[in-house]
Each structure stands twice: as C-alpha cells, then as structure tokens.
C-alpha cells in the first residue's frame, strides 16, 4: 500500500491499473527485458528470474504467466505443478527452446511458444489466453442464465410461463448470450484452445 501524503488517497502499488497482468518467469535478463518492452504498453508486467521468485509474485491478479521451461532451480514443469495446486485460474504459456510435441497439453500448459519469439507472436499468445479467460466468464454467466430459465421451466406450468415477463426476458438473454459466445470469441478454434478451456472447467469445479 502507498499513501499519498498530499491527497490522503491510498493506492495499491502492485496493481494500480486495470490492465491485464502478465508474469514473466525467465532466467536470462536480456530475454526477459525484451518481452517486457514488447508487452508493457498493453499489460502490467511482473518479472521473476527463477521459479521461486515467480511463485512469490503470483497472486489472484495475474492473468497470464510466461514460463521458461529450462531454468536453474525449479524447472518450468515444477513451477506449473505448484501453480495448478494453488488453483489461481491464471493461464500458463510455456516458453521452450525446442518445438514440443503434443504432450505439452497433457502436461497442463495452456499454450507454448518456441524460442526465438517474435513480438507479434507473444502478443497473439497472450491475447488468446486472455480471450480464453473471457470465454470462461461468459460461459459462466451463460450457465447462470440457463439455470434460472430451467428452474422456471421445471417449476411453472406452460400457461404460467407464457404470462411471465421474467421468463420472456430470460429467454431473450439466453439467446443473446449464446450468439455472443459463438461470435465474439470465435468459439473454439484449435486444439490448445479446446484443452485449455476444458482444463478451466475442471478447475472451476474444484473451487
């Protein structure tokens, strides 16, 4: 916390903006600096030089973690495991020196980037992972509406439903949200989107 002596306002230094938060865990300072330069206009960036530091800087505010796989100390895989144990709901992209095979998805990463990474690639990956999170919250909202609608359908007669403005309004909103889910984010475009979204569901379930 930071208290401004002149105005008396209290600000949180760690997260003083509405920008999405990206945590970079990378042991090579030059590489980490480069990522930060590319990202800092659009995101709040946090930097960690190793796995332990990364886990310290990780909290509810972090949306996306860029995790180098090969680091001294805790490996990327171990860090990932601890992130998942903490159930924070952030998305994790693995940064690797070699093109990985399919097992990356099974290991629990939401995306991967192989070095050397270009600026637009990095933006694309981070944006896509943020879209996944937005899709999750839309889906959550959509479900809440569907559940309300189903409760009315299961407890009221069709005559009562026909008379109900609340039911009309719900039905309309359900239809709107369904379109929004398929249009705004283009649905599920590829395998890693699909798996990352499903992984999100199982995590919600555990909460």
């Amino acid at each position: 916390m930071y208290v401004d002596m002149q105005t008396g306002t209290v600000e949180t230094i760690m997260s003083n903006s509405d920008l999405p938060v990206v945590l970079i865990v990378e042991d090579e300072p030059d590489v980490a600096e480069t990522y930060k330069l590319w990202l800092q206009e659009e995101y709040e960036v946090r930097m960690a030089q190793n796995g332990d530091e990364g886990l310290d800087l990780l909290d509810e505010a972090v949306d996306v973690v860029l995790l180098d796989r090969m680091m001294p100390g805790l490996s990327g895989d171990e860090v990932l495991e601890r992130i998942r144990e903490r159930d924070l709901g952030c998305r994790v992209a693995m940064v690797t020196a070699v093109e990985p095979d399919f097992d990356i998805l099974e290991m629990g990463f939401d995306a991967y980037l192989s070095k050397p990474i270009r600026s637009e690639q990095l933006h694309e990956t981070v944006d896509n992972l943020l879209d996944r999170s937005e899709y999750d919250s839309l889906l959550q909202e959509y479900y809440a509406l569907v559940e309300k609608q189903a409760t009315l359908e299961a407890t009221k007669s069709s005559a009562e439903l026909a008379e109900s403005d609340q039911y009309d309004e719900l039905t309309e909103r359900v239809a709107e949200m369904r379109d929004q889910l398929s249009d705004t984010l283009g649905g599920i475009e590829d395998d890693s989107d699909f798996i990352a979204t499903l992984r999100g569901l199982s995590e919600d379930d555990n909460n």
């Binding site: 889906l139 959509y142 479900y143 569907v146 559940e147 889910l181 398929s182 649905g187 599920i188 475009e189 590829d190 699909f194 979204t197 499903l198 569901l201 199982s202 919600d204 379930d205």
Partner: peptide, 20 residues
C-alpha cells in the same frame, strides 16, 4: 462424476470444437 454445471459447459465447449 461431476455436477450439471460442468457437464453443461463441457457439452458447450465440445460442440464448439465439433463445429470447427
């Protein structure tokens, strides 16, 4: 094995994958 909320979302996400 899992609640209706999760199954609902699963079906929705799978439909989207089948669509593509």
């Amino acid at each position: 094995y899992t609640d209706k909320k999760t199954v609902f979302k699963f079906c929705h996400v799978l439909s989207s994958r089948l669509d593509s």
